Amino acid sequence: MDQRVSFITLAVRDLDASRRFYLDGLGRTAAVDVPGEVVMISVGERVVLSLWDEQAFEAEVGPVARGSGVPPVTLAHNVATEEAVEDVLATARAAGASAVGVPTRREWGGYTGYFADPDGFRWEVAYNPDPIGRSVLP
Rank of each mutant, 00 (worst) to 15 (best):
F57K: 10
G62I: 02
L49R: 02
R4C: 13
L15T: 07
D24C: 08
Y22T: 15
Y22D: 09
R46E: 12
R20I: 05
E45M: 14
V12E: 08
D14I: 13
E60S: 13
E45F: 15
R66S: 15
R4D: 11
A11Q: 12
V64Y: 03
V32R: 12
S18A: 11
A17Y: 15
D24M: 04
R46N: 15
E37L: 10
E45R: 15
Q55W: 08
A11W: 06
T29A: 04
L10Q: 10
V64E: 05
A11T: 12
G62T: 11
R20S: 07
T29S: 04
V32G: 00
V34H: 08
D14C: 05
Y22R: 15
S18G: 07
I41E: 05
F21H: 02
A31F: 12
Q55F: 08
G36C: 05
E45V: 13
L23Q: 10
T9K: 05
G67K: 13
L23C: 03
A30H: 08
V12M: 06
R13Y: 03
Q55K: 13
V38G: 00
P63F: 00
V34R: 04
A31L: 06
V61I: 14
A17R: 15
A56F: 04
P63I: 04
G44C: 01
R28A: 00
G44A: 01
P35W: 01
L23T: 07
D33A: 02
R4Q: 14
L23R: 06
D14W: 15
R19M: 01
L10E: 12
V43W: 02
R4T: 12
E37N: 06
A65W: 06
A31N: 06
S50K: 10
V38S: 02
V5P: 01
D33R: 06
E60H: 11
I41A: 01
G44T: 02
G27R: 10
R66N: 15
R28H: 04
V61P: 07
G36P: 01
G62F: 04
T29N: 11
E58F: 02
L26G: 04
V47C: 13
T29G: 03
